[in-house]
């Protein structure tokens, strides 16, 4: 087991290295002169050249990459010109907000997706199954950004139960209950699609497993039906469900972009959208890198979890 984890961690190194390469070179491909964008109206040829030298942009790309990577390893992602603060500080602050939102959504979609999927498989063609199937269909066809707007109109504007935007109340906020109140609407919105996907997959995985010969064996040896379904079938189904939950982690991390925009959540997605429109390249670079790296770590966790359920993958 430990050996397996050690191997998987070792395999992370090339992936993370590849990520830095991709992120760096994608950003290097961006047309236009960043110095021009920064200086704006003050751009004279002299100024531009001086700024380029200052930013190291007059060097060949590989040299720029090595410099960038060295700085990165020392925790220096450069300085955002639009916010005038270190990229790393901004990115980490924003990322923690996103992590709260995405984490909450992931927990919601896992719990409700699994429950709905199991109920729907066990009561196949029953009323519950039909209701779940319909809800899933609506969930995965609904644009999340519109769902967010609808929820705001209903729960914040009409009913005034929950706040419409932000992470904390401006006056007197800041404690945990306040955060949770702000979290409910965006987390639910973000989880809607992912819950549908997980429920759908859980249902079909359970149905697939329940047809296997070893389920017949379990019944033939006289196990109670509860044990057949919730132990034998569910454990086998988890083998195909866990990777999908890993993929959902990617969806909620990415999908947070819309939700943060709709709910004014101060996360990294909204930061990225703003950075793209202001062409703050270093900020985009840092943001993309941190989110991608966190996703790589999530995938590692998923793999380890998978190996706990299915000992066959360790070999």
């Amino acid at each position: 087991m430990h050996l397996y984890i050690a191997k998987r961690v070792a395999a992370l190194v090339p992936i993370l290295f590849g990520l830095t390469l991709i992120v760096f070179f994608i950003m290097a491909l961006i047309p236009g002169d960043p110095a021009l964008a920064i200086l704006g109206a003050y751009a004279t040829p002299d100024n531009v050249a001086r700024l380029n030298a200052q930013l190291g942009l007059d060097q060949p790309l590989p040299v720029q990459y090595v410099t960038w990577l060295t700085n990165l390893l020392q925790g220096d992602l450069g300085r955002s010109y639009s916010l005038n603060r270190p990229v790393l500080d901004e990115v980490l602050e924003r990322f923690s907000a996103t992590a709260i939102l995405a984490g909450a959504a992931l927990v919601l979609c896992t719990i409700f997706g699994l429950l709905a999927g199991i109920v729907s498989a066990v009561r196949q063609y029953g009323l519950a199954d039909k209701a779940v199937t319909l809800a899933v269909l609506v969930g995965i066809s609904m644009p999340s950004f519109w769902l967010g707007l609808l929820l705001i109109l209903l729960f914040a504007v009409e009913l005034r139960w929950l706040p419409a935007s932000g992470m904390y109340a401006i006056y007197g906020g800041g404690d945990l209950p306040d955060l949770l109140r702000h979290l409910i609407l965006p987390a639910v919105t973000l989880a809607a699609v992912a819950t549908g996907v997980v429920a759908r997959l859980t249902r079909s995985a359970m149905l697939e497993v329940l047809r296997q010969d070893y389920i017949r064996t379990a019944r033939a040896k006289g196990l109670p039906e509860r044990r057949v379904i919730y132990v034998h079938a569910f454990k086998a189904a988890l083998v195909s469900i866990i990777p999908v939950i890993g993929i959902q982690a990617g969806f909620v991390l990415g999908g947070a972009v819309y939700i943060e925009t709709v709910f004014q959540w101060p996360g990294i997605g909204r930061m990225l959208v703003q950075a793209i429109s202001t062409r703050d390249i270093l900020l985009v670079q840092g943001g993309v890198l941190v989110v991608a790296a966190s996703y790589v770590l999530i995938n590692l966790l998923v793999d380890v979890l998978q190996s706990l359920v299915d000992p066959r993958v360790k070999t």
């Binding site: 992936i15 590849g18 994608i26 990617g250 990415g254 999908g255 819309y258 793209i276 993309v288 996703y295």
Partner: peptide
Amino acid sequence: MLMAFPYILLALAIVA
């Protein structure tokens, strides 16, 4: 490698 990026984030990076 492409899949190491969360889905929509990669689209954002490309648009960037």
